[in-house]
């Protein structure tokens, strides 16, 4: 019975490690093939992030409990930090023109930032949260 659980855990670890590595690779492919910074950021925040999470969960199934806790802690930190980094880099990328406008079908932020006569549409918005 115990041996069966052991085998099942090892199989689950193998599947999770391989799937995670595949998603990491797909994130790398996205990083190379996508046309601008923000789409590359999407590849990083989605595919690569999921790949790392799967690998961490897979590793956590194999190691003794204290180390499993640490690995899951890395996963939790990853879930918190990746969106924050994505927002910081994405915001700067959009404002410094690192977004290829021709890839966008709709751009509602340009309408918001564009009109200079609008009362509070500029860079000055003091209440603009940045997550830091």
């Amino acid at each position: 019975m115990n041996g069966l659980v052991q085998t099942a855990l090892e199989a689950a670890t193998a599947v999770l490690l391989l799937c995670g590595a595949v998603f990491c690779l797909l994130g790398g492919v996205g990083l190379v093939r996508f046309p601008d910074t923000v789409t590359r950021l999407q590849a990083a925040a989605k595919a690569q992030n999921l790949g790392l999470l799967l690998i961490l969960i897979g590793a956590a199934l194999r190691v003794p409990l204290p180390y499993a806790g640490l690995l899951l802690l890395i996963a939790v930190f990853q879930l918190i930090t990746v969106p924050v980094l994505g927002q910081i880099v994405g915001r700067i990328a959009y404002r410094t023109g690192a977004v290829e406008r021709h890839t966008l079908t709709v751009d509602e932020l340009a309408e918001r930032l564009a009109p200079p006569d609008a009362p509070d549409a500029g860079e000055s918005g003091g209440g603009r949260g940045r997550g830091t």
């Binding site: 490690l17 690998i55 590793a59 194999r62």
Partner: peptide
């Protein structure tokens, strides 16, 4: 070409290293 692309790339490189080391943790303890 943009500095931000390189920052994203470095971040992913670190994640890839973490992922590789986690594989080593799982397989070779």
């Amino acid at each position: 070409p943009h500095a931000l692309d390189r920052i994203v790339a470095v971040e992913i490189l670190v994640t890839t290293v973490v992922a590789g080391a986690a594989v080593a943790v799982a397989v070779w303890d």
